[in-house]
């Protein structure tokens, strides 16, 4: 098969993960944030695949399947919520959601 060392593979996963993380942090559009979360989940899945490959186990893959299911469920609820937010606020700007906060007394 391939002889790319594991840590390089993990490096790839990490880079993808962190790109996703940056995306969550810097985008004000909720849809983009959700997308970035998907990137992160995908990167996490990649790690399981790497692990599964190296220990030659199916467990890693099983886990990724569950991750997929979870991503689907989360996206479903997430998108519904985004729609509701847009419905209520007429925007997808996450910084507009700041009604809940500590009021300085």
């Amino acid at each position: 098969m391939i002889s790319v060392p594991v840590h390089v593979q993990l490096l790839l996963a990490s880079i993808l993960f962190l790109i996703g993380l940056v995306g969550v942090l810097i985008r004000r559009n909720v849809i983009f944030m959700l997308m970035s979360v998907e990137i992160m989940l995908n990167a996490a899945g990649l790690v399981f695949i790497i692990g599964g490959a190296h220990w030659h186990q199916a467990d890693g893959q099983a886990m990724v399947i569950f991750i997929l299911a979870m991503a689907a469920a989360e996206v479903a609820v997430g998108l519904a919520l985004i729609l509701q937010v847009f419905h209520l606020h007429k925007t997808v700007d996450v910084d507009c959601l700041e009604e809940l906060k500590d009021t300085q007394s």
Binding site: L21, L25, I26, R28, V94, L97, E98, K101, D102, Q104
Partner: peptide, 20 residues
């Protein structure tokens, strides 16, 4: 309390930043 209370500013991205 005032100092920490400022951190609870309601901005989701700031909360995420704190997680990071």
């Amino acid at each position: 309390n005032k100092v920490f209370s400022r951190t609870q500013n309601g901005y989701l991205r700031w909360y995420l930043l704190c997680v990071v």
